[in-house]
Design a protein around this nucleic acid. Structure first.
Lengths: 340, 340
DNA sequence: GACTGGCACTCACTAGTTGGGAGTGCCAGT
DNA sequence: ACTGGCACTCCCAACTAGTGAGTGCCAGTC
């Protein structure tokens, strides 16, 4: 059955009121607060239909209605317009991010900013290495048989690793190794380097094969294969706001899921830039997050995606507001990365 | 009034039972579970005294007794012996830490390990820069007017920063700057470097003064003055275990405090190695943590302290066990740092 | 046919009541 | 100094209305 204009309007009103008050909303209150030009009885008929279609439900026989996950979904897809941010909010974002001194600081500030603006739990993925390109490799001799390898990514991220060499090495040879490595790898996307790294061994002068082998082994292990990606989290205290009504009473599973970085990374597995993905309640693949909703998007310089960010909260959340905020923050951070 | 042997024994029994059951403990149950060789009536008399002295209290008139913060304090100081860890636990610690690839990984693993072993919230401070000594500085030319400064600390921690130079610079000059900086700063504790960094400018050849000035400004700002220190956190889900009885019902303030890194850093402000500090409930200076207890200690290679670690949980926690675990983990991590 | 007013009905929530029981404090006795 | 006994306190769980918000349905109106 197609839902006519007014029924949709009723659904929107229910979602908005329920999000605001956290209480089941009844027909009378609805008519009063939104100026629907019909009587409560009419609204009740509409509600009956909406319930039949699975968009709302009654917690118990004589209570008001509450949106279902499907109801929120319809609301997000069809009934809500993204709220443009206020001037004040835009300025707050700029001011908050402007002072960042390095990449870690950007991420750190971003996640706190998101948590503060949305009053939800915020999650930001550190710019991922595998999607980044290499700006420079530096080899720093620590002793005659030890070198520290430092990789600087285009995003500003720095990774370093100690390498034990099979035998002592001369300063000039280190210079040569540095030259070869940089020549072959700079400008490449990290995800595409493994064959190049292997080729490095062939590339090296015969006398340099042993140290180069040690080096490339470490490079492969730690810089390429290691998909380890970090996550920053903030605003977990916001979970405890909704008086335990949200998340059906127990924060435990949510907090547990948030500590599993693997789970969080999975959420960002398929993020795309300028597309904001919303996962509502049951739509989440992760069991423990079935009582929560997630608004996530990708970010990065220009149209590139180097990571994801988003917020997590009760299904009863301000979707239009949160979507707008996440989107805006992601764009600002993207611009920031593009500059550096 | 001095408390005789048996009264102390009663207090210990109350603490142990309450920690185990989370329920007020009565005289009868006490006599049954611990083989005190007296009648419940006698125990009641002892309890009355303990209550008068402020070590235990009654939630309401006809309920059992619960330890007060002072009671826990006495228990920790006088009545409990640190439980030695089991072989299995020791092995678990070793196995868990052995695979760490770098400093970040060590901290990360440590905090998860602590959370898992104690089933509390674990907090680990990243080895602090200001107490660390400098191993090496590396200057990496990014363009003719930009240099990346990389500092490697003795603990393995790496910090990097981009520096914009007032004008273009030659490769040889970079080499010279690198030489001077390393000559003056390597081996110094970071906290003691500010005067040395300033002296660097005098030290440089006249032609190199401008770039050296830019460099030393950045060095001062970011590596020395910046006391920013990072914190790793794990096991927040454990807060939600005690069925909301702990923390008088609201996790909110605790979660908020845990997100304030400043607060956590303060906890570690005065840590000492091989001294395990226990803060019980009201003893905490931070308002929001008055319903929690903290077991913390310093760690570092040998007798040096480079950071703190500890666990936080309800005042009703297993002090002997947690103290033992924190201590053991701190020692293992210290040894690990000493090796590298 | 769409909407409305009216009405009986449902059922969570609150407040008040009650009985049971765990635990205490006190006292007299050993 | 310790114990058994006993009266007392008071939380808690179970039960009982009473209340009211909200519903579903129906007959009537435009």
């Amino acid at each position: 059955m197609a839902l006519d204009e007014r029924k949709l309007e009723v659904l929107r009103a229910i979602v908005e009121d329920y999000v605001a008050t956290q209480e089941p909303v009844g027909s009378k209150a609805l008519v009063e607060r939104h100026n629907l030009r019909v009587s409560p009885a009419t609204v009740r008929n509409d509600m009956a239909v909406l319930e039949e279609e699975g968009y709302i439900r009654q917690p118990h026989t004589s209570a008001g209605r509450v949106p279902t996950d499907a109801g929120y979904r319809l609301f997000v897809d069809k009934l809500s317009r993204v709220k443009p941010l206020s001037q004040a909010e835009r300025r707050a974002i700029e001011r908050f991010l402007i002072g960042a001194v390095d990449l870690d600081d950007v991420v750190h500030r971003t996640v706190r900013l998101l948590a503060q603006l949305t009053r939800q739990v915020a999650v930001v993925q550190y710019p991922s290495l595998s999607r980044a390109t290499v700006r420079h490799f530096e080899l720093v001799p620590i002793s005659t048989t030890r070198i520290m390898v430092v990789m600087i990514a285009e995003t500003g991220r720095v990774e370093q690793r100690l390498v034990d060499l099979p035998g002592p090495i001369l300063a000039d040879d280190v210079t040569e190794l540095r030259r070869v490595i940089n020549e072959k790898l700079v400008g490449q996307r990290l995800a595409e380097t493994p064959p190049l790294v292997l080729a490095l061994i062939e590339e090296a002068a015969p006398g340099l094969r042993p140290p180069m082998t040690a080096l490339s082994t470490v490079l492969l292990e730690t810089l390429v294969e290691r998909t380890e990606e970090r996550i920053a989290l903030a605003g977990t205290a916001n979970l405890a706001r909704g008086g335990l009504l949200d998340f059906q009473g127990s924060l435990r599973p949510i907090l547990e899921a948030l500590e599993e970085e693997v789970i969080l990374l999975k959420l960002f597995g398929e993020v795309e830039p300028s597309i904001t993905r919303v996962r509502i309640g049951d739509e989440n693949e992760i069991e423990d997050l079935r009582t929560a909703s997630i608004v996530a998007t990708g970010y990065g310089p220009g149209s590139m995606v180097v990571g994801g960010m988003g917020v997590l909260g009760p299904t009863r959340m301000d979707y239009p507001g949160n979507i707008a905020t996440v989107r805006a923050v992601a764009r600002y951070v993207g611009d920031l990365l593009a500059q550096s």
